Amino acid sequence: MTAAKPQSPLISLTWTDHVTDRRGYLVVDRLVRGVSSGGLRMREGCTQAEVAGLARGMTMKEALHYDADRTEARYIPLGGAKGGIDCDPRDPEAYGVLVRYLRAVRPYIENVWTTGEDLGLTQELVDRAAAEAGLVSSVQAVYPLLDDEAAARKRLADAFEVTVDGIGLDALVGGCGVAESALAALDRAGVPYGNARVSVQGLGTMGGATARFLARAGLRVVAVADVKGTIANPAGLDIEALLSARDAHGTVDRGALRAGDRELPGDAWLTTDAEVLVPAAVSYAIDATNQSGIRARWVVEAANMPVLAEAEELLTARGITVLPDVVVNSGTNAWWWWTLFGDIEADAEEAFGHTRRAMRELIDRILAHAEAHGTTPRAAAHALVAERLPVMAERFGWYR
């Protein structure tokens, strides 16, 4: 068996819905022990190339959380995969499209692809559609790797029932990881939290949780953006009030705004005076043109692939550090497996503590490598993945 990373995805397929002609995609970039991990997104304009890039990113995220020397860890990372459906999740036909897609790819979910919520979809919706499609679970492909399947499934189900201040634990752990990544960068630069302002694009699951954790750490969230525009207040927004006023898609009811809050155009979040910029909504949000308006010192990629490569080069040249998505937003995926495999229990305090330790350790390692080699954090992450993938392939193999 070769330990080399494949240059092309192992599996790449396109599905066409026979009812609406909508298209869906599945890309399995890599298998480890015969299984891959990666969410399913639904958005208008989703492409196969986008899904392939996300699948490769999942391969990286899985590898980044593997430490061959940590023998006490029960979870051994999987391969990377991703699914995508070209459909507006608000479309009245969207749920039917989702169910038919899951029926079509059912053999892959049963055997090689573990999936869950991503952009445009909630886990509750994925679970409901998966049941209607005849699936036991959206992660059933991993069950043969578990020591005690019944106990593991109960532990994960219990974890999804945990809420913190009215928000599900599953909706918070990813933002906890993003926030900890930003805090680690501030600590390395010696910037007090009270002196740091934050602008967030997207107040959905990831963006909302990130804003909450950063605000509670003492940072001032001065701008947030949703589909209606940007809400800004240089004195700081009441994040808890805005979170309580969101709908299911992360859109804030403007009736919750205070006297000092201003409504600005949708792209104003980019140019807001802030030290930390968090794109947490869509891919390809920052391009070679609009990057010129960014004033932040750090761009923290909470969304998948929000900064185009050319934009990142220009930002780097201007002294702005991009903390890459493959590191920053990997906490949600890792939390699923830490819980299922039994590294942590269905407990919020334990989940947040484990996430913070893992993410800070990873960010510190990535930033130290980048500083030592005069490169970007993304290049440092790629270097670490290049070290770990051959070890994983040698120890566990691609297939069962």
Results as ranks from 00 to 15, higher is better:
D187Y: 08
T14N: 08
P192W: 06
T205M: 11
E93P: 15
E263V: 14
G202D: 05
D273I: 01
V221E: 02
T163P: 12
P265L: 05
V322D: 03
A150V: 14
G120H: 06
L237M: 00
H354P: 13
C176L: 11
A274K: 02
R128N: 11
A133F: 04
W113M: 04
Q201H: 07
N195T: 13
A346V: 07
M1S: 06
T316M: 08
M60P: 09
G134A: 03
A393T: 00
G80A: 02
T16I: 12
V97A: 00
V391D: 09
P234N: 08
E44K: 09
V227R: 12
W15T: 01
G34W: 00
E350G: 14
R212P: 12
R41L: 06
G53E: 07
A217R: 11
C46Y: 03
V27D: 02
Y399S: 15
E310S: 13
Q7T: 15
G353Q: 12
G83R: 01
G166T: 01
G53N: 05
L257S: 00
P377F: 08
A285I: 02
D69H: 11
G208R: 03
H373E: 15
R295I: 09
L242M: 01
F341V: 03
Y75F: 08
H382C: 13
G207R: 07
L98P: 05
T251C: 14
I363Y: 07
A372Q: 13
T271E: 15
Y101P: 09
D165S: 13
D343V: 07
R70Y: 13
V126K: 03
G353C: 09
G266L: 12
W269P: 01
G168S: 15
T271F: 11
G342I: 06
V221I: 10
E50G: 06
V191S: 02
R395I: 04
G134F: 03
V227K: 07
R378F: 05
D21F: 12
F213D: 05
V252A: 05
R297M: 14
A379E: 08
H354C: 14
T230H: 01
V307T: 11
R197P: 09
L26P: 04
A241P: 10
R22G: 12
L146Y: 04
H369D: 14
A232F: 06
A150L: 12
V227I: 10
L367N: 04
G174L: 02
D253V: 00
R33Y: 11
A288N: 15
V164K: 09
A259C: 09
A185D: 04
